[in-house]
Design a protein around this nucleic acid. Structure first.
Lengths: 143, 143
DNA sequence: TCCTATATTGGACTCAATCTAAGTCAAGAC
DNA sequence: GTCTTGACTTAGATTGAGTCCAATATAGGA
């Protein structure tokens, strides 16, 4: 059983076949699937799993803090199981490939007090956009 | 005529009543409307304007570089006419209010070469999340 | 094993956004 | 001023992500 499943079980999460395969699909490095991609992969392991279960389970994992939602293209939400290491995202503006990246400076420090408008600022997300090596090689011209 | 309309006209943009009211709606500080909000406001100035025209025009303004798309909640796209001053966004995690903010450090500098995975990194967007003064006053408890 | 609270399912539904085909009109030519 | 034309706008259909719901199934404790 994965660490994820062990933690969930310890928190009283009822362990079903559906949740098990979703956890399995989310296991790995640089994983940022959409709900539909999670569903497509889960179906290969458990053919009868429904889209509603995938949405339900992903939503619960987000609430439990085991997965974060990321949105890098303004269109589809993606799910990132890497919550145990502070990181940001680097996105290829051509193909949409996503890599996890670690920063050398805390972005919160770049927001001066005079720019906070009285907000209690808690968190910052940074997304970098550029062209990945594969897209740069495939197309030397402009995006 | 606003600066925006003057610039668009100089670029050969055909000036229609619909485009005029959309440009008018987008005029102002800290404006981050959704397409539907732009449509609702445009309808007050030009009752017969269609949603498709709003989407078409916003899309063209984005391509022309006169407006940028922002997505702060992972759901709806918003349109930001403030493209003449480099800025990032500060979002209230309770009510969704958005403010433009200027940073003291370039976020690109926080991404070391060893974390670039061979990407040609061009751009970074930073979004800060926190609670605005109004929401903090209205609800002293946790979000 | 039985029971019950909880999870899953399929399908209908919502909402943002896009597409289509037909009608309209801004602006340059005369 | 009017004509012409291709770009623009329109209403409505369509797409696609995501949500909701009532009926059914089941995990896991008693």
């Amino acid at each position: 059983m994965s660490d994820l499943l062990r933690r969930l079980r310890a928190r009283g999460w009822r362990l079903t076949a559906q949740r098990r395969v979703i956890a399995e699909v989310l296991d790995g490095e640089h994983v940022h699937y959409t709900a539909d991609e999670v569903h497509a992969r889960a179906v290969e392991l458990l053919p009868e799993i429904s889209r509603a279960s995938v949405y339900n389970t992903l939503g619960e994992l987000v609430v439990l803090g085991e997965v974060t939602e990321v949105n890098t293209d303004g269109r589809v939400r993606r799910y990132d199981p890497n919550v145990h290491e502070a990181h940001q995202h680097l996105v290829c503006s051509d193909c949409g490939a996503i890599r996890d990246v670690r920063l050398t400076a805390d972005p919160l420090k770049a927001l001066p007090e005079g720019e906070r408008f009285g907000f209690q600022v808690a968190e910052a997300t940074v997304t970098y956009y550029g062209r990945c090596p594969e897209c740069a090689a495939a197309n030397a011209g402009p995006a």
